[in-house]
Design a binder for these strands. Structure first.
Lengths: 235, 235
DNA sequence: CAGTGGTCTAGACCACTGA
DNA sequence: CAGTGGTCTAGACCACTGA
């Protein structure tokens, strides 16, 4: 367990911040002071301070110095669940039941669909993720066949389109919106819930570069599912 | 707009990955090859590659080289909103109305409360975040007075406890659970919604080290609020 | 065991900016 | 305008590990 020096410097400064010994707005020693304290080259302390900057723990200003950053609430890491994994972790059997599958042109009235389709057409899929044969989540998905031509022949027997895509198509950007909705009549039927039950809706769009790959809306019964986001120190 | 060289190297490699020219598992040039290509010192390419590693775009292995990482689904960055900021960004006036405030001992039947309180007592707060005077979110909060003694005298006139804590107490770890719930009778009254309306509930716990600071549950009308999580290349 | 990345040195010049 | 951080050089020794 011989740690690198820059990592030791980083963790000692970090400890001072997290313990409260250094509070938001407080000034850290300058690079040159740290060089003297740790008897090392400037690149070494620079690396430690750069890491703290990347983590958001400090902010650096020329001429002024390095300062403990104001704590940020904004960004936490959200674990987007892999449903198969989630269900099997509960000791239940996972299944995906395909309800509808259709190749069609994008609707001219939907800018979203036009943009996703590009010059090609769309694969529209509806299906249910099941746990021990009972509906767990319902999803409506559109996939750009221009972006994923290999998909036209895929059957999706037991494997969900999301899992298939994940293993075949690299994506670079994604966005997820999370809202609460009351179950419509058709959704209530799909999920075997009373009409109006509060459900969590995840709407996710995925791109590779500027080309859209897929967009999906998934619905979960609010009481059977929750999302967790975490923020904590690395390591 | 004179960019640094390491940033140019980083962005050129990043472009190759995001365009698909380099796919998951592909090997990148070695540091020494990049030194020759860009005619620079090894520290410079090292910095570019370190940044790509930190972003999760590549993985590096000794003796083997640097490789494009497999795309990750799991973690996306969730923007936990600052409600005041959110509301003011809509051009509305923000307000926090304190409904209840009470100092009490933790309930012996709640392990959560016992752990949060530690050796001290709890400040229990209920209040409503308002936009233009109309209820926007309702929150129930517990704060550990052992962790935040300065709080006992705070009045919370117009400023929400969350905003106050954020500026006075550095936290190091946080966890947020997101679920959908139907509005109970009392919640419906608080938010001025019909009974049973689907609402988004955020439950957040915050720690400094192993000491709990606060836990809060916030409720939003599902139709008036959504959370967004993103993953994409920095910059 | 040879080639890769990880770390570190002891300098240097520069851009920026707040005392 | 002096002090800070940002960047970069041209080396060096080492740890690791897969061909």
């Amino acid at each position: 367990m011989t740690r690198s020096l820059h990592d030791r410097i980083r963790s000692e400064l970090e400890a001072a911040i997290l313990s409260g010994a250094l509070g938001p707005g407080d000034r850290l020693p300058t690079e040159r002071e740290l060089m003297a304290r740790y008897d090392c080259a400037r690149m070494t302390v620079s690396k430690a301070l750069s890491t703290l900057t990347a983590t958001g723990l400090i902010e650096r200003r020329r001429r002024a110095g390095s300062f403990v950053a104001q704590p940020r609430v904004h960004s936490m890491v959200l674990d987007i669940p892999d449903l198969r994994h989630e269900i099997e972790a509960r000791g239940q059997r996972y299944g995906f039941a395909l309800i509808r599958r259709e190749t069609r042109l994008p609707s001219g009235s939907s800018a979203d669909e036009m943009q996703l389709a590009g010059t090609g057409s769309l694969l529209a899929i509806e299906g249910t993720h099941c746990a021990d044969g009972r509906p767990f989540a319902f999803e409506e998905r559109l996939i750009s066949l221009a972006a994923v031509p290999a998909l036209a022949e895929e059957e999706f027997r037991g494997v969900s389109p999301g899992a298939w895509l994940l293993h075949h198509v690299p994506w670079t950007e994604a966005e997820t919106r999370i809202v609460a909705v009351g179950a419509s009549e058709s959704l209530a039927k799909r999920l075997d819930l009373p009409f109006g039950t509060a459900c969590l809706s995840l709407e996710r769009r995925t791109w590779r570069g500027s080309a859209g790959i897929t967009q999906v809306r998934q619905y979960f019964a609010g009481s059977t599912f929750d999302l967790v986001a975490r923020f904590g120190p690395a390591g």
